[in-house]
């Protein structure tokens, strides 16, 4: 068993594009739930729109990658508006069920063969990061995300961060987006706007009775968090193909686990939570099969590789019961409203 190799592979997830994507979406959840008290269980839908909006923008509309990215963000804003206008007056747990159902509708529409020509149906979409062009006219590609990479081809860094120019470009782009997002969210929640949003989390009627337009604030929070979710989806799309089977309800639940790990009402908690989530996932996902292989665990390697998901589920239970403020949250500032 190569323990060092496992450790090094796991550590490499600290800077993985997937981790950055999770951190962005989790930050969006923090804005929704941790600061705004909105129980959004449909974050996967926002991510799917970000990713598919970008891919479809390139493949169907033939847009340059940076404009296509705004199609994804715009789709998330429209989704937030459609979702928010009727639902933001609902009670917390109702909102959770509505958002989870809405995200499933988005996924089913993306999966349906009815729109297969645009969404790729069950096969998803690919090739939108390359020099590409549209599906119908592949020749007219002006260069996509990959062509915008200024880093010369080659391998850089040191183990476990020894990677090619594409991975490094993804990391840099992701880190810049995430850094900006964290800065903006930090500014927002420490401003008078953030004060109102946190007040709404505690008791929206009280804030309403003080003359604040609660609905507008909730809508703003829903859109900001939704855009962060779309950026997370965009980040996933930059790094790999898009497929509707990624944007399932479990994805939302994993984001929640990362959020509660780091602390829901914190600005850096989402990043910390995502890193811990992914490093642990990778570590356990490699460790258990390796242990099974050398006979230290009485299961098949396939079974052993699934134990990590069982652990995620029960870890979420234990977190909520014993440490609801997360690993880095303030014990006094529990985020759960009674």
């Amino acid at each position: 068993m190569d323990f060092l190799g496992i450790l090094s592979s796991s550590v490499s997830f600290i800077l993985a594009p997937t981790t950055l994507a999770y951190a962005l979406a989790t930050l969006g959840l923090a804005v929704h739930f941790g600061f705004g008290g909105l129980l959004n269980m449909g974050m996967a839908g926002f991510m799917a729109l970000g990713a598919y909006g970008y891919a479809i923008g390139v493949l169907t509309f033939g847009l340059p990658w940076y404009l296509a990215a705004f199609v994804g963000i715009g789709a998330a804003i429209v989704f937030a508006l459609i979702l928010g206008i009727p639902t933001l007056r609902l009670r917390g747990d109702y909102l959770a069920i509505v958002t989870i159902a809405a995200a499933e509708i988005v996924r089913l529409l993306l999966l349906s063969s009815a729109f297969g020509g645009v969404t790729g149906s069950a096969d998803g979409l690919s090739g939108f990061n390359g020099p590409g062009g549209t599906i119908t006219n592949p020749a007219e590609g002006a260069g996509g995300f990959d062509q915008s990479n200024p880093i010369p081809a080659g391998t850089y860094g040191f183990p476990p961060f020894l990677d090619n120019e594409r991975i490094w470009y993804l990391r840099i782009v992701g880190a810049i987006i995430l850094g900006l997002a964290i800065f903006i969210v930090w500014r927002l929640v420490n401003s008078p706007w953030g004060r109102v949003i946190k007040g709404i989390r505690e008791d929206e009627d009280a804030v309403r009775s003080l003359g604040k337009n609660v609905f507008a604030y909730k809508m703003q929070a829903l859109i900001i968090g939704g855009v962060l979710g779309a950026l997370g989806g965009l980040m996933l799309a930059f790094s790999t193909n898009v497929n509707s089977s990624v944007y399932v309800t479990s994805l939302t639940f994993f984001l929640w686990t990362a959020l509660l790990l780091g602390g829901a009402a914190t600005v850096f908690g989402p990043l910390a939570g995502s890193i811990i989530f992914w490093v642990l996932q990778a570590f356990l996902g490699l460790l258990f099969p390796a242990l099974a292989e050398v006979g230290l665990m009485p299961f098949s390697t396939i079974q052993a590789s699934q134990i990590k998901f069982i652990i995620v589920g029960f870890a979420l239970v234990l977190l909520v019961v014993f440490r609801p403020q997360g690993l880095f949250g303030n014990k006094k500032e529990l985020t759960f409203v009674k």
Binding site: G5, I6, S8, S12, P17, N164, I167, S239
Partner: peptide, 18 residues
Amino acid sequence: ASALSAFALAFGALAIAA
């Protein structure tokens, strides 16, 4: 191991994310 981890980063993201 480093080749594997690069592989996981580049192509595995989809599989792991799903």
